[in-house]
Design a protein around this nucleic acid. Structure first.
Length: 573
RNA sequence: CGAGGUGUAGCGCAGCUGGUAGCGCGCUUGCUUUGGGAGCAAGAUGUCGGGGGUUCGAGUCCCUUCACCUCGACCA
């Protein structure tokens, strides 16, 4: 593109409403602009970069015989009612009505429509396996959009779906997709780890997430380096370490603890470590109240709680509910005498003579033991902590990740709900085994920028850089500079490289800074050396610029990006 | 949804106890300059987020509403 004819602008200062490095750099580089909370305009330069990500994904999908199609984004609500997911998505679905007040939704993910597409095609075992994918806008009414393109309400997703005869077939399809995903994220030069995760609203047998490592990542990854085992904290099982206390059990008694509502306050009051306390949290899971006990220094893992009681939505109970079931203000709940289901973290089974709330204002109980509240269920309910043992045996550390892709083994859940069956060799009707696989290309872009930037430059990897070669004309009033620049621009463009010609009437410094900001991978400068037949040649990631004879420019570009020698007509198809 | 914060020129911001709206960058024109966000000069640009109220008078005080941001909750 010739900048003098293009839609191109950059900003010098960070934007007030962009908090992340990637969001700010991409807005300053003129790639994207926020339109409203979590909804972005994709400007020409951003679109070029996003299409490069999509191209890599497309190549890897096609290589494993997945077939591209496009589903509608606007879908009758009843499609999701049929599968049972209207309720599980709840408020995160955008809803609207047509002119006859028929309810529609904007699709948050497309298992249902793909299942119905599969149903149209699949009759016999001979029609399987099958793999389909699309790039399509997804709509999710996130409670809190943030971090530029990382958490948004409207975004393109590449979602793929596989259909197989049985679990063994699904395992094969899943394995192929998994390898394709590794290829994709390797080609995107992302620093990532793969973790097992919660199946959440998807349901199914297995979920694995591809997590780009970043301090601003919203997921906590639990990593056992020794055993190469990594999980999302929401599903990380805890190992029961240590042995039961041998202390003699004492009968419990009540002590006044005026105003001590939090573990910090109570530990200060007793001058004892938090490990001597058991805290009791009241949760609301799908409208039912549960009391959950964990050691004073631990946090409840709500995913484990939901799984244990078979619920979908959980939240801390309201103050009113807590007062109603405990008979005390928030901060004094305890297990003794509670009449709602009582779930106790396994760790507490090792403790004796612990301190709990008394279900009475300004009172706690000391010397409490499990026998004092016999009606309870013991389970793994807490969040794992750094330094704990993983189930594989090593000590775990925490890292933060941006979820750039995920893969689900769904099993037959959707096939049964959406009536996707086939006839096998023995003439028996069987449900199809599905898999579902997502990648957010724009979130990948943001993750790449988070991992590869300086204060004033996006350091794109070679395969993603929207501009491979920037040709900077130092003085556009110099006829020779302009002529050689035009010739180089024509030549390199014809050979299939992504070239930007900076022929704006700006000072050289402005152009250099802009080319750095947008992350032009290589830069050719037409300036003072042209009288000797040379141009300046510099890679963004290298300090030194070298002088290269004009005649050798094409060869040097080919050396860096590889021979092309033709238009890549497939690039944006 | 809970707590807090911000809305003033294209962008970033100032504007005190109410008294006719300002700075930097950007933009326009001219001259100079021309390899790392140039200099000088002259200009243009505002329903002060919206609505209502108090007042002789509101960017400023009050009520209300909307948008955006931060932390939390939640989420694939």
């Amino acid at each position: 593109m010739r900048l003098s004819k293009g839609y191109f602008f950059t900003l010098r200062e960070d934007q007030h409403d962009e908090e992340s490095a990637s969001g700010n750099l991409m807005v300053r580089a003129g790639m994207i602009k926020k339109s409203s909370a979590g909804i972005y305009m994709m400007l020409p330069l951003g679109l070029l970069a996003k299409r490069k990500v999509e191209r890599i994904i497309r190549e890897e999908m096609n290589a494993i015989d997945s077939h591209e199609l496009v589903m509608p984004a606007l879908i009758p609500e009843e499609v999701y009612i049929e599968s049972g997911r209207r309720e599980t998505f709840g408020n995160s679905m955008f809803c609207l009505q047509d002119r006859f007040q028929r309810p529609f939704v904007l699709g948050p993910t497309h298992e249902e429509l793909f299942a119905s597409a599969a149903r149209m095609h699949i009759r016999s075992y001979k029609d399987l396996p099958l793999s389909l994918y699309q790039f399509q806008s997804k709509y999710r009414d996130e409670p809190r959009p943030r971090f530029g393109l990382i958490r948004v309400r409207e975004f393109t997703m590449k979602d793929a779906y596989t259909f197989d005869r049985d679990l063994a077939g699904l395992d094969v399809a899943y394995g192929k997709m998994f390898q394709a995903y590794k290829n994709i994220f390797d080609r995107l030069h992302l620093d990532y780890v793969i973790v097992t995760a919660d199946t959440g609203v998807m349901g199914g047998l297995l979920s694995e997430e591809f997590q780009a490592l970043s301090p601003i990542g919203e997921d906590i990854l639990v990593i056992d380096d020794e055993n190469k085992y990594a999980t999302n904290i929401e599903v990380t099982p805890c190992v029961l370490e240590g042995t039961e206390s041998t202390e003699e059990k004492r009968p419990y008694s009540k002590v006044p603890t005026p105003g001590a509502k939090t573990i910090e306050q109570v530990t200060a009051l007793f001058d004892l470590p938090a490990t001597m306390f058991v805290k009791t949290m009241i949760y609301d899971v799908d409208g039912e109240l549960y009391a959950v006990c964990v050691r004073g220094d631990r946090d409840v893992n709500e995913t484990k709680l939901r799984k244990l009681v078979g619920g979908f939505e959980s939240a801390l109970a309201t103050a009113a509910d807590i007062e109603r079931v405990t008979g005390a203000p928030v901060g004094f709940a305890g297990p003794v005498g509670l009449e709602i289901p009582l779930l106790v973290d396994q760790e507490i089974s090792l403790m004796r003579n612990f301190i709990t709330g008394a279900n009475e204002d300004d009172q706690h109980l000391i010397d409490v033991n499990l026998d004092d509240f016999p009606e309870h269920q013991i389970a793994d309910l807490r969040m794992i902590a750094p330094g704990d043992r993983s189930i594989k045996g090593g000590k775990v550390r925490f890292a933060r990740g941006i979820e750039v892709g995920n893969t689900f083994k769904l099993g037959t859940k959707y096939a049964e709900a959406m009536d996707v069956y086939y006839t096998d060799q023995d003439n028996v009707r069987r449900p199809v085994f599905m898999g579902s696989y997502g990648i957010g290309p724009a979130r990948c872009l943001a993750a790449i920028v988070e991992q590869n930037h300086t204060e004033n430059a996006i350091l794109w990897p070679k395969e993603i850089a929207p501009v491979e070669v920037a040709i900077v004309v130092v003085n556009i009033n110099n006829a020779e500079q302009m002529q050689v620049a035009d010739e180089l621009y024509e030549l390199l463009t014809r050979q299939g490289y992504d070239v930007m010609l900076d022929d704006r009437d700006e000072r050289a410094g402005v152009k250099f800074n802009d080319m750095d900001l947008i992350g032009a991978y290589a830069r050719i400068t037409l300036g003072r050396d042209l009288k000797d037949g040379k141009v300046g040649f510099k890679l963004l990631k290298e300090e030194q610029e070298i002088a290269v004879p004009v005649a050798e420019v094409a060869a040097r570009v080919a050396e860096i990006f590889g021979e092309r020698g033709h238009y890549r007509r497939d690039l944006y198809s």
